[in-house]
Computed example of a mutant assay.
Amino acid sequence: MKVSITENAHRKIASKEHNIYIAEGIDQHQSTQIAPLSLLKPFSPDFNCQILKKQKTIESQLNQLIGQPFYTDDGFMLYQGDAMDFLPKIDSAQVEFDLTVTSPPYNIGKEYELPMSVEEYIKWCSQWMYQIHRITKLNGAFWLNVGYLEVPNQGLCVPIPYLLWDKSPFYLLQEVVWQYGAGVSTKHRLSPRNEKWLFYIKNSEEYTFNLDDIRDPNVKYPNQKKNGKYRCNPLGKNPSDVWEFPKVTTGTKRSSKERTGHPSQFPLGIVERVIRASSNQLELVLDPFAGSCSTGIASVGLGRIFVGFEIRQDYCEMAVNRFQEFKRQRDYHSQVESE
């Protein structure tokens, strides 16, 4: 939809002809919703019973290992504590997960981080990645979202995947580039507008990958043929290894509705695609650095069982409030659909 975008009378645009935002009235900012509609669809009563039954079983196992959850409801289990304490205890009891999706601290001075040297950071990451490998099912996967950090005297914006990709027993299947519009503005280097997801699997010969569940229906030539056969799957194209999802933004008239007070929140849309691709309904999804629980909300919205660890109480409280708001939105959506 075109909108009216005009110049400021006191600040002229350098070239209207080469600025599509002015010339064509295009506002490409996409403000994300509290949750995509695809995560708000209700499940059948029978399926909800299956979720609760499996949740109770897993919760009973975990409670014996790591104590009572901070919060639990409808396939969502959040534990307050340090992942480095929890993961070895789970490993000792042989509880296994189908998928882990997480974004750990980047060691760049955020409020939730303890300062480490680059060497200490790599060692710390290697330790918990190794533990995740041990509690991942044989056909399971691990998706890791990481950005950049400074390596003193060597590089300012060093992609963390360069430092971590081989620091665990996982098999790196590929790197996915997450491209977004909003980000840090710079004057002495190019403005960063992407982060990476590392797609790991435990067994290179057999792993869950549901391509049909994540196909992109936006195909430019859907009826194109080669040798008399359609070239494109009727469900859409493979979304490739470059994903464009709007970042969770702040600011007047630009703030994403899903935005919480967490300083490093990734959007539900991107984690939804990850969970669809690498897990199935009723399977276990883990986030050892849960933060605002984007992984948890997407997991529950897709009929998976979520287990999250978060060391800070204020983030746990934030995540619970967010999950409860998500449930209210889903209930409302269900009522509207039934009318």
Results as ranks from 00 to 15, higher is better:
R193P: 03
Y121C: 14
E175F: 05
K2I: 12
E317P: 01
N203Q: 04
S168Y: 03
L302T: 04
L163D: 06
D74S: 05
F199I: 09
I66R: 04
V307Y: 10
A83W: 07
I135M: 06
R322G: 02
A9F: 05
S38F: 02
F43V: 04
N153V: 03
K56M: 05
Q265I: 03
L39I: 04
K253F: 08
E325A: 13
L286K: 03
S264N: 12
N153R: 12
Q131C: 06
D331G: 02
A290M: 15
Q55W: 00
H18E: 12
H333C: 12
H133F: 15
K54T: 08
E317V: 13
E206D: 13
M1T: 13
F76S: 06
P104N: 01
S279M: 11
Y148G: 02
N63Q: 13
E244T: 15
P169Q: 01
E310A: 11
I20N: 08
N153F: 11
H333E: 08
Q55C: 06
Q50R: 15
S191F: 12
S185R: 10
S299R: 08
W143R: 10
Q28T: 10
H18Q: 13
N8T: 03
E17C: 00
T250H: 12
E24P: 04
Y71P: 04
D82E: 05
M77G: 07
K327W: 06
I66Q: 11
Y130H: 15
P234M: 06
G181K: 13
R273W: 05
L39S: 05
I270G: 07
K89C: 02
E339V: 11
L173D: 14
T186L: 12
I90F: 02
D98W: 09
G25D: 10
I122F: 09
A35K: 00
T32H: 00
P159G: 14
L284T: 11
L198N: 09
V176W: 00
T100C: 14
G251Q: 01
K56A: 08
I22G: 03
F43S: 07
S168W: 01
N107V: 02
S338G: 07
E111G: 14
G155P: 05
D98E: 05
S38H: 04
M129W: 03
A35H: 00
N210V: 06
G301Y: 05
T250A: 11
P159M: 13
R11W: 12
V176R: 00
K123F: 09
K137T: 11
E59K: 14
D98S: 15
E7L: 01
Q154V: 10
Y79T: 09
E310R: 12
S191D: 13
P104A: 05
Y148E: 14
G291N: 00
I108W: 09
I311D: 06
Q179W: 10
P105N: 12
S92F: 07
I51T: 02
F309R: 07
Q68P: 07
Y207P: 01
S117H: 04
I34P: 08
E310K: 07
Y171L: 03
P69D: 03
H29Q: 09
R259I: 09
C316Q: 10
Q179A: 14
E310I: 09
E272S: 14
A141P: 04
R254T: 10
W165D: 00
E317R: 15
H333V: 02
E113R: 13
E317M: 05
R231W: 10
H133C: 01
Y162R: 08
I108C: 13
